[in-house]
Design a protein around this nucleic acid. Sequence first.
DNA 1: CTCGTTGTTGATTGACGGGTCAATTAAAAA
DNA 2: TTTTTAATTGACCCGTCAATCAACAACGAG
Lengths: 206, 206
Amino acid sequence: MEPIRRTALVEATIHEIGVSGTLDVPVSKIARRAGVSSALAHHYFGNKEQLFLDAMRHMLTLYAKEVRRGLSEVEGPRARLEAVVAAGFRPFNFQREAIAAWLNFYVLAQTSVGAQRLLNIYHRRLHSTLVHDLRPLVGDEAPRIARLVAALIDGLYLRHALLGDLTTGEEATWEVMHALDVALAASTREQVAAPTPADIPDGDLQ
Amino acid sequence: MEPIRRTALVEATIHEIGVSGTLDVPVSKIARRAGVSSALAHHYFGNKEQLFLDAMRHMLTLYAKEVRRGLSEVEGPRARLEAVVAAGFRPFNFQREAIAAWLNFYVLAQTSVGAQRLLNIYHRRLHSTLVHDLRPLVGDEAPRIARLVAALIDGLYLRHALLGDLTTGEEATWEVMHALDVALAASTREQVAAPTPADIPDGDLQ
DNA sequence: CTCGTTGTTGATTGACGGGTCAATTAAAAA
DNA sequence: TTTTTAATTGACCCGTCAATCAACAACGAG
C-alpha cells in the first residue's frame, strides 16, 4: 500500500503546484487530491519540503528516461547531442506542472541543501552526457562547449516557458543545434589554425 | 512624506526577500524593517503583489541604469554589445537580494499579469538593445542572434546564481562574448559564401 | 478469537498572515 | 483659533496551515 500512496502523493504534488504555480499549496489540498488525509502525507514524507523534493526527483527521473529513450534511437555524437537537446524541449517539459515545478525548485534551491543537491545532480548529469558526446568532436573544448549548450538550454527554456518566445520546441532545439554546430566548426578550425589549447584565462576549479 | 515611505518599503521588500529567499515574507516584517506599520504598506501599495512588483520595477530601473552607464563608456557595435552583456553579470546582479528577487519574479510571472508585463518589458528592452548593435554586424540575422545571446545570458545567470558554475562575472561575460564572436563570424562567412539579401547596409563595422 | 502490525484518519493545536478600519496625531489652511 | 486634510497606526477579523496525536480499521499469524 505504501508505494501506491507515495506515488499518488507525489503526482498530486506536481499537479497542485502546476495549478497554483506556487510551492505555497496546502499539504491538505495535495493529500485530498491523492485521496488521502494530510496526516498520511506527513506520515510518509515527514514534511512538505521532503514531499516536494520527492516530487522533483520523480520529475527528474522521467526526464532522464526521456533522454535515454532519445539516445537509444540514434547513433553518432552529433545525433546524440541533438537527442539530448531535443529531450529538454519536448512538450512534456513545458506543461504547466513541469514549468511550475522547475521554477519553484530554483527558488527552493537558494535555501534548501536538499534542493541544491538535487539540482547539482541534474546539472552534472547533463554536463557529463554532453561532454561524453562532445569529446570526440572537439576534444578538450568539450567541457566549455558543454557548459555553453547547457546554459543555452536553460535560457531558452526559461524564455519559452515564461514568454512563449519560441513557438515550438523543435525550433528551440534547432536554435541550440545551430549554435552548437557553429561552435563546433569554430573550435575545429581554431585547432587547425592556431594550436593554442589554453586561451582561457587562468585557473578554473572543480 | 509619501515618496520617502514608498522607497523605504520597496527597499525593505528587496532586502527581506533576499534574506528569506522567498516571496513568502510577512508584509509586517517588511514594514517593520521600513520603520512603518504594515497597514501603511497596504495603504500605499494596495497589496503584497503590488509591493513586490514595485520592488521589481525598482531593480529593473537600477539594472537599466547600469546598462546605460556601460554603454556610455564605449563606442562601436561590438564594444557596446560587450557592455550590455557585462552589465548583466556585474556583482550587483548576483547579490542574494537580486537573485531571490529574480527567481521569485519568474515564479510570479506564471500567474500574475502584472509580473508578465514587467518581464516582457525587460525582455523587449534587452532584445532591442542587442538588435540595435547587432544589425550593423549581421544585418537580418540580428534578431536571431539577439535571442541567442539573451538566452545565453539568462542561462548562465541562472547557473552562476544557483551553482556558482562560473567563478567570476567576467568569465561569464567572456563566455557569452566568445559565443557571440563565433556566431558573428559564422554569420558573415555564410553571407559571403551564399549571397543573401542586402545586408550590411549602413553603418560602420567592428 | 485475540494480538500485533500496518495503514489511515479526524480532530486539534499553536501559530501566523493578509487585509481592514476606526481612531489618533500632526500639519496645513482658513 | 478653528477646521480640514494627510499620515499613520494598533487592534482585530477571518482565515489558513503545518504538524501532531490518539485512536480506529483491517488483517494475517498464532
